[in-house]
C-alpha cells in the first residue's frame, strides 16, 4: 500500500547528507545520540589528535543533531574546564 511510498529512498541530491540512523538509539529520545556524538568527537580528538579525519564523522553528527545552544554551552564549559562529561 502506501508502505511502498514510505520505504522508497529519496532521490539523492548533491552531497546533502545528515546524521544517519543509529541502531544504538532506536527510540524517540535522541538526546543521548547528540551527547554521545559530542563526547565521542572530543574523545576521538584527544586520542587521535586534531587532524584525524574519521573523527569528523562525530562532528557532523553532533552538529546536525544537537541544538546550537547546547553545543555552545558545552564548548564554553570545556574551555573553562567545567564540563561534566568524561572526555
Amino acid at each position: 500500500m502506501s508502505t511502498a511510498i514510505m520505504a522508497a529512498a529519496p532521490k539523492a541530491s548533491e552531497k546533502h547528507s545528515t546524521a544517519p540512523f543509529d541502531p544504538r538509539f532506536p527510540n524517540q529520545n535522541q538526546t543521548k545520540y547528540c551527547y554521545q556524538s559530542f563526547l565521542d568527537f572530543h574523545r576521538c580528538q584527544k586520542v587521535k589528535g586534531t587532524n584525524y579525519e574519521p573523527c569528523n564523522y562525530f562532528k557532523r553528527v553532533y552538529k546536525s543533531m544537537c541544538p546550537n545552544e547546547w553545543v555552545d554551552k558545552w564548548e564554553g564549559q570545556l574551555d573553562a574546564g567545567t564540563f561534566a562529561g568524561r572526555v
Binding site: T3, H16, S17, T18, P20, F21, K63, S64, P67, N68
Partner: peptide, 30 residues
C-alpha cells in the same frame, strides 16, 4: 510504521521558546 527506520535526507531542529519557535538547519551551512 511510524518508527520505520529511514535514513533521513535532512535534519531540522525546532526549539520552542516563550512564545515563538526557532528553527535550525545545521547539516551544511548553519
Amino acid at each position: 510504521l511510524m518508527d520505520e527506520i529511514n535514513n533521513p535526507m535532512l535534519t531540522i531542529k525546532a526549539i520552542g521558546h516563550q512564545w515563538y519557535w526557532s528553527y535550525e538547519y545545521s547539516d551544511m551551512n548553519n
